[in-house]
Structure formats: C-alpha cells, structure tokens
C-alpha cells in the first residue's frame, strides 16, 4: 500500500494528466455525438454579450456595404410589386384567393459571431426562442443558403454553417431538376463545395445554378452556388461529381433569415408514425 502511494506521488504528473484529459474528452465527445445543450458556448450571457459588443463595432465599419446590398435587394423586391407592373386590360377586379396559404415564414436576424476557417464552422445569431426559432430550422440570406439552427437559447441561437463536416443538403440543378447532394469540400476553401450523387443521365453545364430541391428543409429553388468544374478532383460516390462555387460569401455575412416551415411539424409527425408502423 505504501509503495503504491509512493509510486503514485512520484509519477503524479502522469496520473493528473490522465484524470484531466479524460474529463476533457468526456466533454468533447458528449457534445459532439448528441449536440447536447451545454452552457459552454456562445449563447450564454458572458460570451454572447461580449460578441454582441464586438459585432456592434464591426457592423458600424461595414455599414456602407450592408446599405448597398439592402438597397439592391429592395430594388429587386420592388420590381416584383404589383404596383410596378403596367396593367393593359381596361377592367380589373379583385378576387380573394383561398388557394394560397402561407407555408414559409421568414424571421430576420443579425449575425453576431461567425467563423470560416475551421473544419466545422458555426454562426451565432441574435434571435432565439422568444422570436419563435426552433432547433432544426433552415437559415438563408439574400444570396443563398446559410445553414441550419442547431441550438436555441432565449435570445440567441447557434447555426451550423454550410461550411461544416456534417452539413448535407439535398440540391438540384436549376435547369433540369436533377437531384444530388451538396457538401462542403474537404480542402477548407470557404468558396467551393461539392455536388455529388447526381444521376449519370444528367447533363450539367458550366455556370449552371445549383438550388435547393423540394426534399430539403429550405423552400425549393434557393440558390446554393454555380457549377465551376464538371469533374471534381475530390470525387465521392459512383455517380456524377462537380465542384460548386458557393453563392454566399460567409466572411461578409451580416444579416440572415430563419425559415419557419409551417408544415414541418406535420411532416415530421407523419414520418415518425411511418417508422413506428414498419
């Protein structure tokens, strides 16, 4: 017994190392496999508050760019207004149309923390459960797809960016509607992703737009990027592979929209029931 104690105290550095390393690994693995709600992230008050401060300063510096992009978006939306169309038939009458019901709702939010240079990137946005955000909602911006909400606090949420090892999005070619899967490439370039599993019959063209498909959690037709190379070097799967230039510039992201799909709950309920029945 005494010898054992002497042995332990002689090599105490090693035993302390084992204890601390194991506890750190437990934190790491637990968080990674279940995306569990831990208090160690940027939605808690101290870190979230500091990030919000730093973001105020940053957003002031880039006001001009944000103004420009908002003005462009305004102009685009104004073009779609009824008042900007010329009516060339003499008589017109109003019809209350009950065919259209709103399926998607958009919640605007500002990005207060962002990274693009890691293997797994996350954003923090300044809206949380108070604004109606729920885990699993899609996030887009004026240019295209941004990511998916993975953790919701009361006032802030964490978004798993498109630039993440585990983000896979169901995508389609804009012209022919051929389906495929979109992931971020493994060379950590924040501007290039990979579209794979596209059927061999498809005829993609250079520069063709890649958009979200009907199967994704986003509204169909949100742009992801443009095809930049038809034969990707980092091929995956047995079907067609192509490099995609990502539409969103993640390093300049300032404002995003969280997509609330009103039919998502119904869909999830049905699919869960189907699993139970099988």
């Amino acid at each position: 017994m005494r010898n054992l104690l002497i042995f332990i105290s002689k090599y105490n550095a090693f035993f302390l190392f084992i204890i601390f390393e194991v506890s750190a690994l437990v934190i790491y693995i637990k968080y990674n496999s279940f995306q569990k709600a831990t208090f160690i992230n940027s939605t808690n008050q101290v870190t979230g508050g500091l990030y919000a401060r730093a973001d105020q300063l940053k957003s002031y510096i880039s006001l001009r760019e944000v103004n420009d992009s908002l003005a462009r978006e305004n102009a685009r939306l104004r073009n779609q207004l009824k008042t900007s169309f010329y009516i060339d038939s003499a008589a017109h009458h109003k019809v209350v149309d009950t065919i259209y019901k709103q399926q998607y709702e958009y919640i605007d939010a500002a990005v207060i923390n962002n990274s693009t240079n890691h293997r797994n990137n996350y954003l923090t946005i300044n809206k949380g459960s108070r604004a109606g955000i729920v885990k699993g909602m899609g996030v887009i911006c004026a240019q295209g797809v941004v990511g998916k909400v993975v953790f919701v606090g009361e006032h802030l949420s964490v978004v798993q960016s498109l630039l993440h090892k585990e983000t896979i999005i169901s995508a389609a070619l804009a012209g022919t509607k051929d389906l495929g899967s979109f992931i971020w490439g493994d060379n950590l370039d924040p501007h290039v992703g990979l579209l794979y599993n596209v059927s061999n019959n498809a005829t993609p063209k250079l520069g063709e737009l890649v958009v979200t498909s009907d199967l994704s959690l986003f509204p169909a037709g949100i742009p992801i990027g443009k095809i930049s190379n038809l034969h990707s070097k980092s091929a995956k799967g047995a079907f067609l592979n192509m490099d995609v230039n990502i539409a969103v510039d993640f390093s300049k992201l300032q404002y995003v929209y969280v997509v609330n799909n009103k039919l998502a709950q119904e869909q999830r309920g049905l699919e869960a029931q189907q699993k139970k029945d099988e």
Partner: peptide
C-alpha cells in the same frame, strides 16, 4: 472553447 463553440 466557450468562445469557439467547441466544448472540450
């Protein structure tokens, strides 16, 4: 980790 969102 708290600032990088990577607990552990």
């Amino acid at each position: 980790d708290a600032f990088y969102d990577t607990p552990g």
